[in-house]
Design a protein around this nucleic acid. Sequence first.
DNA 1: TGTCATGTGGATATGTGTGTCCTGTTTCAT
DNA 2: ATGAAACAGGACACACATATCCACATGACA
Lengths: 140, 140
Amino acid sequence: MFSQTVEYALRAVVHLAIHSPRPQTTSEIAAATQVPTAYLSKVLQGLREKGIVLLQRGVGGGVSLARSPQQLTILDVVSAVDPIPRITTCPLDLKAHGVRLCALHRRMDDALLHMETAFRETTLAELLEDPNPSVPLCDR
Amino acid sequence: MFSQTVEYALRAVVHLAIHSPRPQTTSEIAAATQVPTAYLSKVLQGLREKGIVLLQRGVGGGVSLARSPQQLTILDVVSAVDPIPRITTCPLDLKAHGVRLCALHRRMDDALLHMETAFRETTLAELLEDPNPSVPLCDR
DNA sequence: TGTCATGTGGATATGTGTGTCCTGTTTCAT
DNA sequence: ATGAAACAGGACACACATATCCACATGACA
């Protein structure tokens, strides 16, 4: 349902949010989030292209958030690496349906819409402030 | 988000519900739902193994619903071919999290739960009764 | 200006979902 | 019995997501 890439990207930005605004190296993030380093590198390049993170080479470089955790939502991250495929027209391309979906696809898209909305309404800052005994990415 | 297989399976059972209780051949369903015949055959075999449809060989045979459209939900079909992967334990296997998910995975699973619930509450019969000008799988 | 830390990007490997094809098996009608 | 209709199932093909490796480019700092 959610791709591995989305899962990895979310872990990475949460890690960055926790340490914001200090940049973290790809290796550090990979170790903390239990993601293969080389693959995470690709995922982060994707996030950079979409303006989610900043990548800085050289000594003292690393990865940092392009926006503050207050201004970055789960949806921003999801959309950057693996957008939610909303159903906007009839998948069977039936002329009579067009943009007015049938009951089946209407309900499927409603589910996607609800997910999209829920993700749009949650910022990274809210994730960290959540009164939850389990802290994201932390074992204590 | 939804696999092709789920989309195909849903089209097939909707077609069967429309013509219920008359059995339809795989070829008929494939033509009506615009699904590759050979692949649909595999999908239907999966649905049979999960008790969603009945398959009858020989002349006059074909595919029919194992339950009435009133007793078959979208979730039944989705679960049969590609179950919604609820997040029940911490994907990072953090000991401190265990079953108590962190804010991130809590929200991801909440989205999956909502989808599951919505699909559980809709039967095939309700899809067909929906006062929607676009009739599922029909162009008129 | 040299050196090291760090990200960049291409080539390649692997697994799985999707899709095709062909032969076999079952069932019914005649 | 025979033959046609229809599903069953294995082998194979292909695309894409995931993952790895390595040579290279870049930036900071001494």
